[in-house]
Write a protein that binds this DNA or RNA. Structure first.
Lengths: 196, 196
DNA sequence: TGGAAAAGGGGTGCCGCCCTCCCTTTTTGA
DNA sequence: TCAAAAAGGGAGGGCGGCACCCCTTTTCCA
């Protein structure tokens, strides 16, 4: 999970130094020795009773106290609006549910925080679908395929090309090319997922 | 977490098709519609009481029953030797603790399973350290730096070069070059972690 | 039924990563 | 003390991803 979040942060930050701590004690030691700009907290780590709200909030409070100058974002598997409220009172700037946390969402959250000072994204209870990966696809092809599978039904592909192209700063025709390339690869392997 | 595991599998499998399911129901539907060679199971997903051994084993049993022809590996945050034993009775081939699950370990587990039929890796309670990432490093540089930081003390760098080079199939001199490159980049940034 | 959307393919230039081989100077340790 | 280890750079080839350009044929639907 740490590695996945670090990967996400690498994609949306430039020239960043990232440190991952496997335990609360290691995290506190790190924060004593240096200052951080951004701290992500998962209060459900081993050693903490994930059911006890008190234990969870205690972890969050300890981290916030140890790094008062940083921006804090809580990322948890068992999220609730009530807990988000408590976190905000501690000075936490963002609260994100792990379930449904997809690529690029962390970037949106950081964007929200820099604009509004606070951002909260709880896990969606619907709209969950299996995600499909094929090792023969390049990064871009996979990314565009994901967007296409998540498009609202009735939406024309051409509109999606324009939307994606606008978002990633690429010619819509190029996006179309990538999508067709990805589709062709999957067809050759006979493994077309639904929604394509 | 799913994305991280899929990334891991992409690295150690060739020409693979990977599907990630966010819920147990979606997973069961998928397994009904097609056969899989390998199924990873995390019994601690939202909607399951992660404390209840009964609930956890129930999830594992349902997945195994739904994909009888596949190899099964349980990957969980709260791992125990007792649970591993129960899993094995269900026909599960691998049991891995999330904590301390580092890059390449999943490949070792799959290797073990293909040789011995079973593999178990519980979370280490010591030897935990912060991991360090800098976006200015290339993949190889980061990988070699990680290995160097995890080396046993007293071990000469030259030995590590040879060990890594042998493992990834690259000239030890090249590994040395990468390490020095990575070190130089970090020095220019003034952000040298411990153990380098 | 005619035009837009979609499917399907070929080619090109750029850039970053990976790997290799070359060199010098400083530090370490038996 | 003296050789091995380590630090610090320079140059270059191969390859793949990325973005852009071009083209034809088939399908959809208003």
């Amino acid at each position: 999970m740490r590695l996945a979040l670090i990967q996400e942060l690498k994609n949306c930050l430039t020239e960043s130094v990232l440190v991952g701590a496997p335990t609360l004690d290691i995290a506190k030691t790190l924060m004593k020795s240096q200052d951080f700009d951004l701290v992500l907290i998962d209060p459900g780590l081993p050693g903490v009773n994930p059911i006890s709200l008190f234990d969870r909030l205690s972890v969050i409070e300890q981290v916030v106290d140890a790094s008062p100058s940083a921006t804090h974002v809580v990322i948890t598997g068992s999220d609730s609006v009530a807990e988000a409220g408590h976190c905000r009172r501690f000075g936490v700037a963002g609260y994100v549910g792990k379930t449904g946390l997809m690529r690029g969402l962390l970037a949106e959250v950081l964007q929200d925080i820099s604009q509004n000072g606070f951002s909260i994204r709880t896990s969606p209870t619907d709209q969950l679908a299996a995600d499909f990966h094929y090792s023969g696809l390049t990064g871009r092809e996979q990314e565009i395929l994901d967007c296409m599978r998540r498009r609202e039904r009735g939406m024309k592909r051409k509109e999606v090309y324009e939307q994606i192209g606008d978002r990633i700063g690429v010619d819509p025709a190029t996006v179309e090319k990538y999508y067709k390339q990805a589709r062709a690869k999957l067809l050759r392997r006979g493994r077309l997922p639904d929604g394509i």
